[in-house]
Design a protein around this nucleic acid. Structure first.
Lengths: 366, 366
DNA sequence: TTGAAAGCGCTAACAG
DNA sequence: CTGTTAGCGCTTTCAA
């Protein structure tokens, strides 16, 4: 190891190091406060002074230090988002909305992907807590577990007590009294609507496929599914419900297994479009045509839905808008709102809509 | 507006505010220095003292302030990545690698998506500069523009001078002397290989489709394409090259137009898999079968390649590994490396490989 | 093994 | 309109 240069504590700094507001002030012949004022542009400064400061900044290649700023000021200009898998288009689109809205509010976006692991989620929230993010957004289905909810609730409180906030995006809210916003989409309604679409085409023997068994999203979609049957006073054979996971692979395997098990169904409700892709592959492999032999529907309306042949009938979820709404909710009340009437709902629910394409036809006797 | 409480400047702080190291020190009856030491665990502290401090931290719900830490310390524990579109799987997979490797080094990942706009890219780099990111990674094809390169070079210098570094990922390096790493994949080789695959199947009238005309990626893939012809001493009709954009829509339209123009080709080289998806749609619409009537190849090997029917023959790019390598490169030299032999190449190139699936067949006379 | 104290770079009273 | 100054919360000598 080379000997450290005798770094004195005094004025003399590493000439290589980044310039500070003080360097700029010295060069422009003003005080640091003035420099701060022109940087922030939130306070009157004489035009000539401003020009001098700007010149000095340019000459020195001055770049503000966001951390010093965060420490001295009150906002960090960063929002955090934690998703379970950034390459999953469902999350990617939400993240896109989050980052766009964050940018619009002058903030950067810290993206954390847990790669599936509920423990990691909490760890990321803690990291975001350390970052003093202006808002942290938790996206996607939550494990329905008492203890876990409590742990999240605790973070929500910590966030709130430091002027930040927790936003639950696409997952159920916490108990009353916990300071968290929820930005949801109509999972139950969407599932009921597309199930009804199948029902009105004449299908009643519908295989429901996908979603981790204990995930809130699964629960909600399944509830909508059952609701649609109930609304028509129809029964649904419980053996036609298979949950366990999301994923193309899983959808593929389960479809094959259902076929092998000789399950009696004329349509498949895939819990999301990716699962549907697996369903398509399995059906194709078995020489079954869609929708002639089996009808299929998905959920989410991510790009693969239009790539599949025939194009998949699915439920459109306003993913990007969900992300934007989450940021707005999380930031509300922090920005000195220009509109005093801007009220903040603790819970927002966005609508979903069925997108009819070519994967549903009349049922066939098999 | 409610009147602000008389926030005195002295010791008394907002009781709601986050606890600080000082609160912990007071409660544990030690100095702040000691608390810092147990938090960082990089300095001997008596077991009993440590226990007391840990207890105090727990009791108070202490959460370190990353900004204060960044300001006082030297590393920010954040790496930044700027991509052009986070929902594009090409970038999403790279981002995934980046975030995973960042996490492995104990860092968080700031993801910026420019949504297509070269100016935004520079702006994001500046933001990341303000954040004092430990490394900033610029992903994807660069516009081949002198001035732009100069601007990027300047940022690279600024980054380097503050102990950080710039990594160019999947794009050409800067001029000599500019302190930036480049982590590339073999774009030319991959393009040449898959072109040769087409050539050896008997195709010579190959329509090359896609890529913004002035993007480095386009240039590289096109060069590989031509190289393959040259290697076999074959000519390629320049009218069969159409560049302009990436994107499914673009691929769709251009295919239709090429067909309408009566261009004579037996195969299509789509500059990436997304463009290939558009090509598939157009061909299907015109009743042309793949590969019976037209062969098609893509590039990148993102998930859609296997969703398309017939499955797309394409070039696999080690996207995730590219992201990981970029972080490693950017961080090298910052971490006191345990391995004194760990040398850092200024440029790393990862290999690509042709993945043969079902979209290529022998050419047909039309 | 521990404490005191000097900053890190910036913002925001407060005074002029 | 501008300067002074006291911190923001933490790390890190230096001394004890």
């Amino acid at each position: 190891m080379a000997a450290e240069p005798p770094r004195t504590r005094a004025r003399r700094r590493d000439p290589e190091a980044a310039r500070t507001i003080r360097d700029v002030a010295a060069r422009a012949g003003v005080s640091t406060a003035t420099v701060s004022r022109v940087v922030n542009g939130n306070y009157p400064v004489a035009a000539s002074t401003r020009a001098a400061v700007e010149r000095a900044m340019r000459d020195l290649g001055y770049v503000a230090n966001a951390h010093a700023r965060a420490l001295a000021g009150s906002t960090t200009r960063v929002v955090g988002i934690v998703v379970s898998e950034i390459v999953d288009p469902f999350f990617a689109y939400i993240a896109r909305g989050v980052q766009a809205e964050a940018l619009a509010s002058g903030r950067l976006c810290l993206v954390c992907s847990t790669q599936g692991g509920e423990a990691a989620e909490l760890r990321f929230v803690d990291l975001l807590l350390e970052q003093r993010a202006d808002a942290v957004i938790l996206v996607g289905g939550a494990v329905e577990d008492k203890e876990y909810f409590a742990a999240v609730g605790q973070r929500a409180r910590q966030l709130a007590s430091s002027g930040s906030s927790l936003v639950l995006c696409g997952r159920p809210g916490l108990e009353d009294g916990v300071p968290a916003y929820a930005v949801e989409y109509d999972n139950i309604g969407g599932a009921a609507a597309i199930t009804d679409h199948l029902l009105s085409a004449g299908h009643t023997k519908i295989l429901y496929l996908g979603g981790p068994t204990s995930l809130s999203t699964t629960t909600a979609r399944l509830r909508g599914f059952h609701q649609a049957f109930a609304a028509r006073k129809l029964e649904h054979d419980p053996r036609l419900v298979r949950t366990g996971a999301f994923g193309r692979q899983w959808g593929y395997q389960q479809t094959l297994r259902a076929l092998d098990d000789g399950l009696d169904f004329t349509a498949i409700f895939a819990a999301n479009d990716i699962v549907a892709a697996g369903v398509y592959a399995a059906l194709r492999e078995r020489g079954l045509r869609i929708p002639d032999d089996v009808s299929v529907v998905g959920y989410d309306d991510v790009p693969v839905a239009t790539e599949l042949q025939p194009a998949l009938t699915t439920v459109r979820v306003p993913l990007e808008e969900l992300g934007r709404a989450a940021v707005r909710a999380g930031l509300a009340g922090q920005e000195p709102s220009a509109d005093p009437f801007a009220h903040q709902q603790p819970m927002t629910t966005l609508g979903t809509v069925v997108v009819v394409r070519d994967s549903v036809g009349p049922p066939v006797k098999r």
